[in-house]
Design a binder for these strands. Sequence first.
DNA 1: CTTGAAATTGATAAACCGTATCAAAAAGAA
DNA 2: TTCTTTTTGATACGGTTTATCAATTTCAAG
Lengths: 143, 143
Amino acid sequence: MSKHVKEMGILKEHLGKHQLKFTRQRELILDAFLKQEHITAEEMYHQLARKDPHLGLATIYRTLNLFCEAGLAQARHFGTQTQYDNVSHKGHHDHLICTGCGKIVEFENCDIERLQEEVATRNGFTIQTHRLELYGLCSRCRH
Amino acid sequence: MSKHVKEMGILKEHLGKHQLKFTRQRELILDAFLKQEHITAEEMYHQLARKDPHLGLATIYRTLNLFCEAGLAQARHFGTQTQYDNVSHKGHHDHLICTGCGKIVEFENCDIERLQEEVATRNGFTIQTHRLELYGLCSRCRH
DNA sequence: CTTGAAATTGATAAACCGTATCAAAAAGAA
DNA sequence: TTCTTTTTGATACGGTTTATCAATTTCAAG
C-alpha cells in the first residue's frame, strides 16, 4: 500500500477532472517517482523493469508528462535528456549548473523566494511553481 | 564591414590560439548572432538562407558551438531545442508565465540578481547567465 | 456481476535534434 | 602560385521522445 496518500489524491483529482483513469501502471510509476528527487524516463524504465518487466518505455514517458500536467512533476531539459523533478519533494530547491563540467549544485534561498512572490503579486500573478537555474563556472573549471 | 569589432576580435584571438581559420561563414554567422539576444540553430539557418542559400545547417551548429568555446555564446536547453545566448548582450529579463492562458510577462529585478550572485559566490561559482521562470495564474485566470 | 463505451497499454515506427563522416573547396603560410 | 591544413555542405547516423494502433483494461451503468 502506498505511503504517498496526498500525492495520490492530487493525481486522482486530476484524473477525475479530465476523464482519465486510475491504472495499476500509474500507481506504480507514481510510487517510484515520489521516492526520488528527480529522475529520467530511462532511469525509471530500468528501475521498474524488475517489478514489472512488461512496463513499456512509452508508458513511462506518458505518465511522467501526466504528472507534470497534474503539477506533481516538473520537466527540466539538461544535456540531451529530460529530468523530471519531484515537486513535492522539495522545499523547492534551485540549481547552480557548471557550464564547464556539468556539475549541479542544489540550493535554496528564502529571500529570493520572497522577492519572487513580490514580483508576482505586483503583476497580479499567483505563483504555483518556479524554476531558477544559474549557469556559470565552478571554482575548478574557472582555471 | 562589421560593427561588432570587439567580438570579432575575441573570435579571431580564439581562432589564432587554436590553429583555426577565419572564414566567410564564421564572419557571417557571428554578425547575425550578435544582433540577437538568443537564437536557435534552426532559426539562424532560416534567417541566413536569404543571404547565403548554400550555408549548411551543420556549419551553423559547428559555428555556434565554436562561439561557446570562445566565450561569445552560451548554450541553454530550452524545451526540446538548444538556445544560444548572446553573452555580450546585457539587459537580462526573466519571465512570469500564466499556466492558464499562456500569457508571458517579462520583468527584471536587481535585488533577485544580487541574491543570485551571493548564492553563486558562496558556492564558488561565477555566473555567466541565468534563467528564472515563475509559473502561476494571472489575475484573469485565477477566477 | 455482467456489459460496453472510452481510455490505456505495450510494441514499435516515426519524428526530431544535434553530431559524425567524408569528398570537395577554401584558407593562408611559404 | 603551391601545398598543407582546415572548413564546408550534404547527408547518414544515433539517441531521445512522441505518434500510431491493435489488444487490453478501466469503470460506470444496467
